[in-house]
Design a protein around this nucleic acid. Structure first.
Length: 421
RNA sequence: GGAGGGGUGUCCGAAUAGGCAAGGAGCCGGUCUUGAAAACCGGUGAAGGGCAUAGCGCCUGUCUGGGUUCGAGUCCCAGCCCCUCCGCCA
């Protein structure tokens, strides 16, 4: 979230950010609540000052064995007033707080206005001299993806990978993790459920409750991304400046309800309720976060480069940028069956939005003061969609799929998935 | 699931109702040293927020939320988390 003080002093920036996002918030009410809150705090402080002073006197008088009857009556009245003011203050405080939790991050000035902006393309879009199949057809024909089984075991929007399909998924996870370790990230295998505090910390709650699967009995949420458990590793901590940047990579499955997201272009494995993802998460100083974002983006891109999948990078516009992000890129991989780009990674800088919510700070060496870290993350990459891209881009006339060379060691040497392999 | 113990700063840890929430480690500086370590001396260090401001300062703050009290780290109630033992279990 944003700091109240900062909002108060930069109200125009907040308004502009909201406009760019095409989002709305009742800033005027917020400012009023904040003012009331401060008024109560000030009055309360003055009374408490009196209370502290007098109650010390009482202690002294009592020791001397003097009568304190009148003074105590006066104090009871004072205590009552303080209690009322505190109650009022808390009401305004919770209004302010609730508002802050539902207010999106402010945008970096470089965020484009109306449309995503392409900043880079890599690889050659494949040309086929036969009619291409979509991943769903390929997967089912080869017997490696089973949507019917997923629907039976759980429901629609779940898929079962079988045989070399399952193996491919697992190979990709291992390949990605190994690559990111080589790039300097520390591997983490976090819990796949998080508690309420963690889920608020990274801003999935309170606003995106509908997107989450919840275990009602325990108040735990299935993770929609590894970002949640991994960022919260350092919740309510004060880190040392020397430790930064901290870079983690983590594999988790991701669970998303995708409420109301059904549509034409998202059949098969492109949008499902459970998918695998390898995530990159960084904690940095405010001064280095944008540098680190560029590196993080490159680290994610490297996955596609090594797989030899054509992709492009776009700078996200205000409307498409995530609620908690200040600035971000999407990496999009080529999808032959639909002849379009498919989002396969989002790399974002949250600046201090998450760290303020989750209270993740560091002590600055030069001043000894605590400051909020900047948090960043990006998919490196969405594994299911990577399988989709491999099946489609590397299909041949016979309906077989050629496995990228970097994955051979992870596939026990299997180079082609065909009907009988 | 049952029984017991615990939660105080960056870390360890004292304070069981009446006073700036000890002390130590750490960190920074110095003395000593060829250099470092050790030792010694000094300093720093309690989140976060609000108010005041030339400057000193004031309020809040001991896991969270309530309560008792003139006054709560300390007493009472509820909750969360951690540890030990027992039970169950892959």
């Amino acid at each position: 979230m944003l700091s109240v003080k900062w909002i108060r002093e930069n109200i125009d920036v907040v308004r502009d950010s909201l406009k760019k996002r095409r989002a709305k918030a009742d800033l005027d009410s917020f400012l009023r609540w904040d003012e009331e809150r401060r008024k109560c705090a000030k009055e309360g402080d003055e009374l408490k000052y009196l209370q502290n002073k007098k109650s010390k006197e009482i202690g002294k008088l009592k020791k001397e064995g003097k009568d304190i009857g009148d003074l105590v009556n006066e104090m009871q009245e004072l205590a009552g007033k303080i209690k009322n003011l505190e109650r009022k203050k808390k009401e305004y405080e919770s209004k302010v707080n609730n508002f802050l939790l539902n207010l999106p991050n402010r945008l970096h000035p470089d965020v484009p206005w109306d449309e995503n902006e392409e900043v880079k393309r890599w690889g050659k879009i494949p040309e086929f001299d036969f009619s291409v199949k979509d991943h769903q057809r390929i997967g089912e024909d080869l017997g490696i993806l089973d949507f019917k089984a997923g629907a039976k075991v759980t429901g629609s929007g779940f898929v079962v990978c079988k045989g070399l399909g399952a193996r491919l998924e697992r190979a990709l996870i291992n390949f990605m993790l190994d690559l990111h370790i080589e790039q300097g990230y520390e591997e983490v295998l976090p819990p796949f459920m998080t508690n309420t505090s963690s889920t608020i910390g990274t801003a999935q709650l309170p606003k995106f409750r509908e997107e989450l699967y919840k275990c009602e009995k325990d108040d735990y949420y299935l993770v929609p991304t590894a970002e949640v458990p991994v960022t919260n590793l350092h919740r309510e901590e004060i880190l040392k400046e020397k430790q930064l940047p901290i870079c983690y990579t983590a594999y988790t499955p991701c669970f998303r309800r995708e409420a109301g997201a059904y549509g034409k272009k998202i059949q098969g494995m492109i949008r499902v309720h459970q998918f695998n993802k390898v995530e990159l998460v960084k904690f940095t100083t405010p001064e280095t976060s944008y540098e680190e974002l560029e590196k993080l983006l490159q680290d994610a891109e490297e996955v596609l480069k090594r797989l030899k999948l054509p992709y492009r990078v776009v700078k996200l516009c205000g409307e498409e940028l995530g609620f908690a992000a200040s600035f971000g890129y999407d990496i999009e991989v080529w999808l032959p069956s639909q002849e379009r780009w498919l989002e396969i990674s989002t790399c974002s800088n949250f600046e201090s939005y998450q760290s303020r919510r989750a209270s993740i700070r560091y002590r600055e060496e030069s001043t000894g003061k605590t400051r909020y870290v900047h948090t960043l993350n990006g998919s490196g990459l969405a594994v299911g969609r990577c399988v989709v891209a491999i099946l489609e881009n590397f299909q041949d006339r016979e309906g077989r799929v050629h496995i990228p060379e970097v994955l051979w060691p992870y596939m026990d040497g299997v180079r082609i998935i065909g009907k009988n392999s």
